[in-house]
Design a protein around this nucleic acid. Structure first.
Lengths: 337, 337
DNA sequence: CCCGCTTGTGTTAGCGCTAACAAGTTTGTC
DNA sequence: GACAAACTTGTTAGCGCTAACACAAGCGGG
C-alpha cells in the first residue's frame, strides 16, 4: 500500500506512461483543459491518484512566469491590526490557490521598503500587498517602477496602486457623535502620529464632527499608538481637567489613559468618558470595559486579496475597497449628568 | 541611463555575452564559486550591475531542488506570542536568504494540519515550522511521513522533529518562587487549557515549586487563555477568597482577573497578588502594572530558524533549543503584611 | 467524396538555471 | 625543461513543466 520508497516524486512523464498517454495529456488533465475525452481524463486521474502525483511548482513557475506568490510587507506585523489583516489575506489567498510570503520591516524608511520589495520581486511574487500605513509609503513605491500589482492597505487608490481601507474618518465621526449625543461639549482627541494615514484621518473625522456641531476642536494631543504614550497624555489631561470626554486613537493608548486616570483619581466614565479605536479582544475587559470603534481587519485582508486577484487574473485597473467601521458601546462612556 | 524598456528581465546568457564569458562563468560568480579569476569576476559583476541582473528563483529551484522557502503554519498566528515568533523566524530567514510562507489554521485538528503541510510541500518548501502548541500536534505530524525538516515550536525534540521552546516550567517556578518569597502561602493558578503543552508545563512548574516549599497545590482553575475566561475565573476566586496570590497562565487572563477583582472590590496587590505570563507590551500599563514572566518570542523564532538551517544546510540531526524566561516585577505583587 | 471544421492527442522546443564533464592554461617540483 | 597538479573557463545535458504546432480521426454539407 503505502509506498515509502526514497525515490523522487513522480512527474508528468511517470503519470503519462502509467496511464498510457503522453505527458502533455496529463498536463491537460491537471490544468482542466477542455479538450480531453472523458475516458482519458478518468484514466489519467486514476494514475495521478495511484502515484500520488503533485505538480512541481518551480517547473510550472518557470514556464508560466507566474509564481502564485503574493508578498505581504509591513511594519508592526505583530500588532493586532496588521496581524489580523495578514490573516485575512492569507485565508483568501490560500482559498484561491495562492501562497503568501511575508517581510517584516523594522522601520518604514524608503530603503527598507525598497529592500523588501526587491526581496519579493526576486522571489517572483505575482503581487505585493503593503501594510505600511505611513504618509510617504505611496511615494516610495511610486519610485520603484514595479512590474506587478500593488495593493496599499490603509490608503485609497493612487495611480497604479490599489487601496484597501477601513473608513477611518467615518469611524472617528461615529465615536465623536456618540460622545456629543451624551451631552459632552468639550471633547479631546489623542491621535496617533499624524504622519500616519489612519491617525490623520481619525483626527480629521474628530474635527469635522466637532465643527459640524459647532464645538471647539482645540484639544488634540499626538501620541505614538503605544500604551506608554497614552499614559503620558493621560497624565497631562488629568492635570488639565479640561475635557469631559476623550476620543483616543487606538485601544492601547486608551489603556494607558485609563491607567493614568486611575492614578490621578479621575474616574471613568463618571468624570471623563473615553472612546477607543480598533476593538481588540482585550478592550472588553479593560477597567471599565472600553467603548470603541471596531475595525474588521480580517475582512480588510480578504478584500485586499480580492482586489489583487482581479488585477492579476483579469488584468483589471487599480481600485479601492472600503470597509465600514462599527461603534461598540461599553462602559467607558456615560451621559453627562 | 534608466532602461525602462518593457522587455524581459536579463538572464544569465545576457550577462554572459555582455561580459564576454560563458553563462556558466556568470553562474559561478553569482554563486560565489571559488574558481573564478579576479579579473573575470569583476568584469562579470560590472555586467550584472549594468544590466540589473537578478537570478530567476524558479529556474534555480527547479534544478537545485531547493526553494529557499520555509513554511510556517500555526493557529492563533495573530496573538502576541505566535505573531512575534513568526517575526523572529522571518527576520532570521531573510538574513539567511530564505523566504517565509505562512498558513494560518482555524483549528488544530489533524486534517487542517495535514492540509497546511501539503500546501507547503506543494510549494516545495525546504522546511516547515509548526506553531501549534497542542498536545497531539507531534503525533499528527509523525503520521505525515514528511521529507523535509520540521521544527515544532513549544515542544522538545521528538524523534525526527526538532523543537524550540521557552522553558515554561522554569518561568512558572520563577513566578511562584517570587510569590513565596513575599510570604504568600496560599497560591492559586489559572492555567491555560491543559491539553496545551505550555499550559501543562506552567501548571507543572507551579505545582513543583509549591511542593518543594511544602505548600498546598490544590487551587488550580483551567481557563482558555482569553481575557474573558480570566474574568470568569476571577469572579470565582473573588467569591471564594481563599488565595492571597494567583499565578495566571498569561497576561490576557490576568487582565480579565483584574477586571473581575476590581468589580468585586478585591484590591490588587493589597488583598491578592497577581503574576502573569508573557509580558505583552500592554502589561506594564494594566491597573496595577502587571508582574509577569517575560518570554522572548522573537529570539525563539530566530532560534527556530537556526535549528532549521543546521538541518537543511548541514544535514544535522534534530535538536532542541531552549530560551530562558525572565521574571519582571511590577506593581501587581506585594509582600504579605 | 472531398472540403472545412471541430475534437482529441502527440511531438517538439524551450523557460533559466546548475551539475558534470571536458579542455585549455597556468603553476610548482625535481 | 618535462610532467603532474592545480586553477580557470567552456560545452553539454537536463531539471519538470507548458505553449505552440502537427496530425489524425470524426462529422456534416455541398
Amino acid at each position: 500500500m503505502g509506498n515509502a520508497s526514497p525515490t523522487r516524486p513522480p512527474r508528468l512523464e511517470d503519470v503519462a506512461s502509467h496511464a498510457g498517454v503522453s505527458h502533455q495529456t496529463v498536463s491537460r488533465v491537471v490544468n482542466n483543459h477542455p479538450n480531453v475525452s472523458k475516458a482519458t481524463r478518468e484514466r489519467v486521474e486514476a494514475a495521478i491518484a495511484e502515484l500520488g502525483y503533485r505538480r512541481n511548482t518551480a517547473a510550472r513557475s518557470l514556464v508560466t512566469r507566474r509564481s502564485q506568490i503574493i508578498g505581504v510587507l509591513g511594519t508592526e506585523l505583530a500588532q493586532y491590526g496588521p496581524a489580523n489583516t495578514l490573516l485575512g489575506v492569507q485565508q483568501a489567498a490560500r482559498e484561491a490557490g495562492y501562497f503568501v510570503s511575508i517581510a517584516a520591516l523594522k522601520e518604514s524608511g524608503a530603503d527598507s521598503i525598497a529592500d523588501a520589495v526587491r526581496y519579493f520581486t526576486d522571489q517572483g511574487a505575482d503581487g505585493i500587498i503593503v501594510i505600511v500605513p505611513h504618509d510617504g509609503t505611496v511615494q516610495t513605491l511610486e519610485g520603484l517602477n514595479l512590474a506587478v500589482p500593488v495593493v496599499v492597505v490603509g490608503a485609497g487608490s493612487h495611480g497604479r496602486f490599489s487601496g484597501a481601507m477601513v473608513d477611518q474618518k467615518r469611524g472617528a465621526r461615529l465615536a465623536v457623535a456618540h460622545l456629543i449625543s451624551q451631552g459632552h461639549r468639550r471633547i479631546g482627541h489623542i491621535s496617533g502620529p499624524l504622519d500616519w494615514i489612519d491617525a490623520a484621518a481619525r483626527a480629521e473625522g474628530w474635527r469635522e464632527e466637532l465643527t459640524s456641531a459647532r464645538l471647539a476642536d482645540d484639544l488634540l494631543l499626538e501620541g505614538d499608538w503605544s500604551a506608554g504614550s497614552g499614559y503620558r497624555m493621560g497624565q497631562r489631561l488629568a492635570a488639565g481637567r479640561t475635557a469631559t470626554a476623550v476620543f483616543v486613537g487606538n485601544d492601547q493608548m486608551a489603556l494607558g489613559l485609563l491607567r493614568a486616570f486611575s492614578e490621578a483619581g479621575v474616574r471613568v466614565p463618571q468624570d471623563v468618558s473615553l472612546v477607543g479605536f480598533d476593538d481588540q479582544p482585550e478592550a472588553a475587559y479593560f477597567t471599565p470595559p472600553l467603548t470603541t470603534v471596531r475595525q474588521d481587519f480580517e475582512e480588510l485582508g480578504r478584500r485586499c486579496m480580492d482586489v489583487m486577484r482581479t488585477q492579476i487574473e483579469d488584468g483589471a485597473a487599480s481600485s479601492t475597497t472600503v470597509v465600514d467601521p462599527e461603534l461598540v458601546v461599553r462602559g467607558s462612556t456615560s451621559p453627562l449628568p
